[in-house]
Design a protein around this nucleic acid. Structure first.
Lengths: 206, 206
DNA sequence: GTCTATAGGAGGATAGAC
DNA sequence: GTCTATCCTCCTATAGAC
């Protein structure tokens, strides 16, 4: 029984390792070319296995993308867990946004079309993804309301609008345009977009 | 000679009218489904002509999209021309952003993938598009620098970063998410995103 | 310049041997 | 579960008659 468990665990580890290799490749290709630009042939070639083998692990291209999104969501949850739940909620929000922008600048943020309906259906039907999304939204939502109650965040904006605005920073085209211009380091780009996001384009008195 | 000119002009008007019908359809489909989601069959069906006829007017799908972008760019230039060149540059910038967001909310803002290289090549090779883009960028750039000199716009941000940030509002996913929630009118959505863009998420003293 | 019909090819997915 | 080989659908683009 113990042996059997060890063997099972070993096999599962091998399986898991291969699937993680697949997901990392998918993640990178999704960041580079987007969902429609990425081909399954390409994924298989980069992973170094046959396309048919890929389909033994994941039933469709949509599920491949969903797995990549789940992986990113897990990383986001892990990052959120490192932030103090006491203290300024505002600082946590800034930290999360900076983290997601760093991910995008590093080419590790999948870019999915918000319009593709088959992909949307798969994502919505993916329990791991939805649970992660709801968890992240809840945590950010709590910080947003907290920051608004403290008066640090503009209370006139609906919390949901703030949440969407923060999420949108993860796929902000401004990041890649500034990166393409090659005039600033990633850190400088993050600082600029962070400033325009939280402080606004208008001058501040202080 | 006069007759010949009139006949030519009439024919050209007919041609132009049909091409404008095509472009309006392409524009709407690009806004709805994006470049990859739009099919040429669909365009032809909605316009009510055969696909082969479409290809007599435009040599490729990329050129169809480019024509739609040129059309939008022309509309933008026309709008810019209505704004006073004297007075607060800041107000003009807000007005332009509000206008582009209204266009997107009305489903008239083509959404193109920034990654598709064949499309990028066509756009860059399209003189009408590039001239329009440069013209619009120059005008906005002048207002940005003017507003920064007046101290209305944060001078710490590079003008090019501000320009990109304003352009990005035209394809901001926050707009469609807020619209999908159906909790606010288009005007309210524009006001909120305008506020978060210029005033920032953080509270302002005043 | 409009049509019908079709070429040509890319890409998602599967069959079947091992 | 991995491979090779193939299927099949969708889509861009064009041929050729009128």
């Amino acid at each position: 029984m113990a042996n059997s468990n060890v063997k099972m665990s070993f096999r599962e580890q091998m399986l898991h390792a291969r699937e993680e290799a697949i997901i990392r490749t998918v993640n990178r290709l999704l960041a580079e070319k987007g969902f429609e630009g990425m081909t399954v042939d390409e994924v298989a070639a980069e992973v170094g296995i046959a396309k048919a083998s890929l389909y033994k692990h994941f039933p469709s291209k949509e599920d491949l993308a969903a797995a990549a999104m789940v992986w990113v969501m897990r990383r986001a949850q892990a990052f959120l867990a490192t932030l103090p739940d006491t203290g300024a909620a505002m600082d946590n929000l800034r930290a999360v946004v900076a983290w997601t922008m760093g991910l995008k600048l590093a080419g590790e943020m999948p870019s999915l079309p918000s319009q593709n309906s088959s992909l949307r259906a798969t994502l919505i039907g993916n329990k791991d993804y939805m649970d992660g999304l709801i968890d992240v939204s809840d945590r950010l939502g709590a910080w947003i309301e907290s920051a608004q109650a403290e008066g640090a965040l503009n209370p006139a904006l609906p919390a949901i609008a703030v949440l969407y605005t923060l999420f949108a920073r993860a796929c902000d085209p401004v990041l890649e345009f500034l990166k393409m211009s090659a005039l600033h380091t990633d850190e400088e780009i993050i600082a600029m977009v962070l400033s325009s996001c939280f402080d606004g384009l208008r001058s501040r008195a202080s």
